[in-house]
Amino acid sequence: MLYLDDMQVGTKRSFGRYEVTREEVLDFARKYDPQPFHLSDEGAASTHFGRLAASGWHTCAMTMSMFVAEMGVNPQASLGAAGVDELRWLKPVYPGDVLRCESEILEVKPSRSRPEMGSMRTQTTTYNQHDEPVLRFIALALMRRKPAEG
């Protein structure tokens, strides 16, 4: 189990593999972001997307799926997150793309008022199969500190 105390600024890691399917893009769009360019090639043809593109929110959800899978392999003492800053959709994601993630720890900060926990800022970038960044954000994660030995 990795605790806040184990985290070091500058640490980088690569993880995840997510194959984007047409069916999933359409299903997500119908439920959560029913704009024409997320619903059909015809609806996207006259836009800068040119063809059916995944919702940026769907790209966030796929990134989160990869992150949670990574936490299953390398468990962390996570307490959730306090938010996301600087979210940017850098390039469209299309059916057939294969995504992966890279993250870097930017800041580790023990809580002054709650000594059993603290926060960590990480920048995560999601890439497609051409190593082109498609999504970038900074997350503020909350984590438990190592239990006192006793």
Rank of each mutant, 00 (worst) to 15 (best):
1 M>C: 07
5 D>I: 00
5 D>N: 11
7 M>F: 14
7 M>T: 08
10 G>Q: 12
11 T>D: 15
12 K>M: 13
13 R>P: 08
19 E>D: 15
20 V>Y: 06
23 E>T: 04
26 L>C: 02
28 F>Q: 00
31 K>Y: 05
31 K>F: 06
34 P>W: 00
35 Q>F: 07
35 Q>D: 04
43 G>P: 02
46 S>F: 12
46 S>T: 15
47 T>E: 04
49 F>W: 08
50 G>F: 08
50 G>T: 06
52 L>D: 01
55 S>D: 05
60 C>R: 00
64 M>E: 08
64 M>T: 10
68 V>D: 07
68 V>M: 11
71 M>F: 06
74 N>F: 14
75 P>G: 03
76 Q>R: 14
77 A>E: 08
78 S>D: 04
82 A>M: 12
84 V>E: 11
84 V>P: 02
86 E>C: 04
86 E>W: 03
88 R>C: 03
88 R>N: 10
90 L>Q: 10
90 L>G: 07
92 P>G: 03
92 P>M: 01
97 D>R: 04
97 D>H: 11
98 V>N: 01
103 S>E: 14
104 E>Y: 04
105 I>E: 06
111 S>N: 04
111 S>I: 03
112 R>M: 15
114 R>Y: 12
119 S>D: 13
119 S>N: 13
119 S>L: 14
123 Q>F: 06
130 H>F: 15
130 H>V: 13
132 E>R: 09
133 P>Y: 09
133 P>Q: 09
138 I>T: 15
138 I>P: 02
140 L>I: 13
142 L>Q: 08
143 M>H: 05
144 R>F: 04
145 R>H: 01
146 K>E: 01
147 P>L: 00
149 E>H: 02
